[in-house]
């Protein structure tokens, strides 16, 4: 063992530290490869990527930014859950509580809200970029389909979250949105060829009632914090895995 020059050195080369972080910043090719290979998070990446994969002009970085925003949403969302109760009697109160009484509550809520808007935008731009570079072409067809699913999940995540503040904006935006479901052919009670009435149609199934009330709020909450994020995570895992398995980032032949 080297003689310890200072505290940092003694930590850096201690058995404890070494057991957690095995590789330093040595500028050798082997070490650079190990940095990626031996890190569970970084090995999302291949060890090497083609030169154009590092050009923002080519990638617009939109996929990566979307993933980052998803992480931001997860963290801020979990923190907001500590103070939010998805019940009509409390939901709005809790928003006010977060806004005025919880330390950094308003900041977290703002970040959560703005990052959600941003994420919807970056997902759409990511799709545009992937289309313009023809990156859906074989062998990446299925990954494009997974991407479309992720686009839908992003819309739905944002949409279900929109109801939760339980204010006029939320209530009426979701009213307008969910009222369209009534018009679904066959399974909506006001659509063409309606087979069901308002107590058993598809809108009733989603809202858990005929109007947006306590059941709808709870359902949107459960969808927003468990069902849709879980679905998004599964599809993201497939999406990232398939990028690697389909030959990495697309590039000119």
């Amino acid at each position: 063992m080297k003689p310890n020059k200072n505290i940092w050195q003694s930590i850096r080369f201690s058995p404890l530290f070494k057991s957690i972080f095995r590789h330093g910043y040595d500028d050798t090719k082997q070490n650079k490869i190990l940095q990626i290979r031996s890190n569970v998070f970084l090995h999302l990446h291949p060890v090497k990527v083609p030169a154009h994969a590092m050009k923002i002009r080519f990638t617009w970085c939109m996929g990566g930014i979307t993933f980052f925003l998803f992480l931001v949403e997860t963290i801020t969302g979990i923190l907001l859950m500590f103070y939010y109760r998805p019940v009509p009697e409390y939901a709005y109160q809790d928003m006010k509580y977060l806004e005025f009484d919880v330390p950094f509550g308003i900041l977290l809520r703002n970040i959560h809200r703005w990052a959600a808007h941003l994420m919807v935008g970056t997902v759409m731009l990511h799709m545009l970029r992937v289309f313009l570079t023809g990156s859906y072409k074989p062998p990446r067809e299925f990954n494009w389909v997974v991407g479309v699913m992720l686009l839908i999940f992003t819309f739905l995540l944002s949409f279900t979250g929109y109801l939760l503040p339980w204010d006029q904006l939320a209530y009426w935006a979701i009213t307008v949105g969910t009222n369209m479901i009534r018009a679904t052919p066959f399974i909506g009670h006001e659509g063409p060829f309606a087979l069901l009435d308002k107590y058993n149609d598809v809108r009733f199934m989603i809202l858990g009632g005929t109007e947006i009330g306590a059941n709808a709020l709870l359902r949107f909450y459960v969808l927003h914090i468990v069902v849709l994020p879980a679905a998004a995570i599964i599809f993201m895992a497939v999406h990232f895995w398939r990028i690697r398995k389909d030959g990495g980032i697309s590039g000119p032949l």
Binding site: F204, M205, G208, G209, E211, G213, N215
Partner: peptide
């Protein structure tokens, strides 16, 4: 599971 989503009693 689908039936589960249709409550018998509504608190409307």
């Amino acid at each position: 599971s689908i039936r589960f989503l249709f409550p018998r009693v509504l608190f409307e």
